[in-house]
């Protein structure tokens, strides 16, 4: 206000006097500028800005989603691995048990077989021994009869004599 001219006729130089022409020009220039800039600058600039912001937002969201997915898959993998481990352990344990059972069975079976074979062999030996003894008895009896016949001559009845000798041989102890 200090600089407002003291001369009342010098209107142009007052600081606070509003010039309608200047005011109207300001408004006209502003709206023309708004119109032109909106079409040629703000529109495209805002569009590219929004598109980029959207794409960044999308990328971040996608990355977040993928991270969650990856974590889920990792957890699943871990669970699967644990389950596989458990299964393997179970299989091994079952295998061990089965092997143990089979071994025991085989051992007992072998044992049975062996004892059976031994007893078979024993009885076979017994039978052979008896047969051999019998043959030997017959042989001895015949030899004795032939010897006795030669000694006592021909009037001896061979059947009767054999019976006597058999009775005699049977009195001999088995071994």
């Amino acid at each position: 206000m200090l600089f407002i001219s003291s001369d009342p006729h010098e209107k142009k130089d007052t600081l606070l006097s509003v010039e309608p022409g200047l005011l109207i020009w300001t408004i006209i220039i502003f709206f023309l500028l708004l119109l032109l800039l909106k079409k040629y600058a703000w529109g495209p600039l805002l569009k590219s800005l929004n598109e980029r912001e959207q794409s960044i937002k999308d990328s971040v969201e996608k990355a977040e989603y993928l991270k969650q997915e990856a974590e889920k898959i990792l957890a699943q993998n871990k669970a699967l691995l644990a389950k596989a481990d458990e299964d393997a352990r179970k299989v091994i344990a079952e295998g061990k048990e089965l092997a143990e059972k089979m071994r025991n069975e085989m051992i007992s079976k072998t044992h049975d077989d062996t004892s059976r074979m031994i007893s078979q062999a024993k009885s076979e030996i017994e039978r052979e021994k008896i047969g051999a003894l019998n043959t030997l008895k017959d042989e001895i009896a015949n030899l004795a009869i032939q010897a006795a016949g030669k000694i006592i001559d021909e009037n001896l009845d061979p059947a009767k004599q054999k019976k006597i000798i058999d009775g005699f041989i049977n009195k001999i102890p088995q071994n």
């Binding site: 006097s17 509003v18 309608p20 200047l22 005011l23 020009w25 300001t26 408004i27 502003f30 709206f31």
Partner: peptide
């Protein structure tokens, strides 16, 4: 620095 210009802007 002209009050007419700033008045124009304020009127907008």
């Amino acid at each position: 620095s002209s009050v007419s210009v700033t008045a124009g802007l304020a009127i907008i």
